[in-house]
């Protein structure tokens, strides 16, 4: 039985069969990986570029970033507060889900995109307080419609920034001040500690 199978593989047709099988497996893998890289389908195709384009600050809608861990999403009434005042958006069919959400008093189920795993605790506040702008991590949102992560949000990327910001070099310590050197070392210990994010 097994010998017969290997004999069949030795035939030209059998080899073509093996080749086709391998191709199918390979393309399935490529398709599968490509599926995981797609941004998820949102309930509304939210055009970030238009909103940033008319000069709305990130913190106007994602105001939690200034105070706490999660930047939060605006409530549907906050969206509608602006949109009902504009003739174009008031009647737009694209905003039907928003109108429905306001009328039914139901939240819009946005799919989170810039996410960290459950075992990571990310707090926005200290990052804003450290003078980082939103686009440092979230990319140029004025060029995006639906938000996409500009890079993989993994630990190596976090740590690279934490290490770079606390390195005793010419940018962080231009005057070679020993007090700043010591402060940077303390900060580095803290910013590279596991307990900073994992608990």
């Amino acid at each position: 039985m097994i010998k017969k199978f290997f004999d069949a593989l030795n035939q030209p047709l059998g080899r073509i069969g093996v080749l086709i099988t391998l191709l199918v497996v390979f393309s399935a893998a490529v398709w599968g990986i490509a599926q995981t890289q797609k941004p998820p389908e949102q309930p509304i195709q939210f055009p970030h570029n238009l909103h940033v384009g008319v000069g709305i600050q990130c913190l106007y809608c994602h105001s939690g970033a200034l105070r706490g861990a999660s930047p939060g999403l605006p409530t549907e009434t906050k969206c509608w507060g602006c949109h009902q005042q504009m003739a174009i958006t008031n009647t737009s069919p694209l905003l039907k889900p928003l109108v429905q959400a306001v009328e039914n008093n139901q939240p819009i189920n946005w799919i989170p995109v810039a996410q960290v795993p459950d075992f990571v605790r990310f707090v926005h506040r200290p990052h804003i307080a450290a003078g980082l702008n939103c686009e440092v991590c979230h990319g140029n949102v004025s060029q995006m419609t639906v938000y996409q992560n500009p890079q993989v949000l993994n630990m190596g990327w976090c740590l690279a920034c934490h290490r770079a910001k606390t390195e005793d070099n010419i940018q962080n310590n231009p005057g070679r001040d020993p007090a700043i050197t010591a402060a940077l070392a303390t900060k580095r210990t803290k910013l590279t500690d596991c307990s900073l994010c994992h608990y």
Binding site: D118, H198, Y199
Partner: peptide
């Protein structure tokens, strides 16, 4: 929400409520 929900197969123990330490440190810093 401040604490990880642990999966099967991991060890866990008291953390001295590190999430509270971090929260207080963050508040003090702000």
């Amino acid at each position: 929400p401040d604490v990880t929900v642990r999966r099967r197969g991991v060890m866990e123990k008291c953390t001295f409520c590190i999430q509270r330490i971090r929260h207080v440190e963050d508040t003090a810093q702000s």
